[in-house]
């Protein structure tokens, strides 16, 4: 394989993995605090729509990314209000958020359908980016990729080393104890939810700013749900999110190449591969005790301060 082709294939894998990494690492933090936000798909699609709208209107990718982040956070705040404020069942609220986000993104993005803009710039460091095999791969990605990896490193450090990270893990482990000690369970959870929303929004923005040059309704196509599955797959450990996302990115790219190669398999069946792969991944990593051992003990439980 030539150097260019090698890098090209691997770069498409990274490109396909990046939105998953972004959305998953945010959801991982949310879940470690004990909140199961099933609305990732809804936050992501809003991030995609608003990210594109912001970038197209301002002409700046950075402003677009910021708009995506803010849209994701606004959605997350709504989710926080519902589940942390009103103690609503988190599964139902997550579904509501996704349905709402799908509709609202369509409404708000209606004026931008069919428009195109240039994809975000890629890093170029003279010399380094031109190295054979790895130059472009390591030093020539778009900036989102570096942000994604930086976020993973930051989250890994935050959770294992920082005092606030410790308080966050404690909140997800046992909210009654956390409350008894005077930790603010609800504030911690709300902030963790907001962080998850920001990441999901950025993941959505990546789709319209770097992955494709346009916005179209429903374009997240289940990536938010896959990101949720990846958190389980990663056993709630930050670096495993990267591993899982790259595997998924690989599967997606492989599937696209298989379609292009036209093996005679129907395209729809190949398109179903990522969804089936998600199920397989969930099944392989959920079996029995392993899942229970890794999941935050208070995940998905509403906290109501006792008397």
């Amino acid at each position: 394989m030539t150097s260019e082709l090698f890098q090209l294939v691997l770069m498409t894998v990274v490109t396909a993995a990046t939105p998953l990494i972004l959305a998953s690492i945010g959801e991982l933090v949310t879940e470690r605090a004990g909140v199961l936000n099933l609305g990732v798909e809804g936050m992501m699609i809003m991030g995609a729509a608003m990210g594109f709208a912001g970038a197209y209107s301002s002409g700046s990718t950075a402003i677009g990314a910021l708009c995506g982040i803010l849209a994701g956070m606004a959605m997350a705040a709504l989710f926080g209000l519902l589940t942390i404020g009103f103690a609503i069942n988190q599964v139902a609220a997550g579904l509501a958020l996704t349905i709402f986000g799908t509709g609202l993104s369509g409404l708000l993005g209606a004026g931008f359908v069919g428009l195109k803009r240039d994809r975000s710039d890629q890093l170029h460091i003279p010399g380094l980016s031109d190295l054979p095999y790895v130059g472009q791969l390591v030093f020539g990605e778009d900036l989102f990729v570096y942000v994604a990896f930086g976020l993973v490193a930051g989250v890994a450090w935050f959770l294992s080393r920082s005092r606030t990270g410790l308080a966050l893990r404690a909140t997800g482990d046992n909210h009654q104890s956390a409350h008894a000690l005077g930790l603010s369970v609800r504030r911690m959870r709300f902030l963790a939810t907001l962080f998850g929303g920001a990441c999901a929004g950025l993941a959505g923005a990546y789709l319209t700013l770097a992955y494709t040059p346009f916005w179209s309704p429903g374009m997240t196509a289940g990536r938010g749900w896959i990101a949720l599955a990846l958190v389980v797959f990663a056993s709630w450990k930050p670096w495993r999110v990267v591993l899982g996302a790259l595997l998924f990115g690989g599967a997606t790219v492989l599937q696209l190449h298989a379609q292009a190669a036209a093996f005679g398999l129907p395209g729809q069946l190949l398109s179903a591969v990522p969804y089936l792969a998600t199920i397989v991944a969930l099944v392989l990593l959920s079996s029995g005790a392993r899942k229970n051992a890794a999941a935050p003990a208070a995940l998905g439980q509403a906290f109501i301060a006792p008397r």
Partner: peptide, 23 residues
Amino acid sequence: VFQHFSLFDNLTVAENIALVLPT
């Protein structure tokens, strides 16, 4: 000292104690 304990099962002893001390 709580009756039903205000501890966190999946944290270490030191981490449990660190939670209430000044940062």
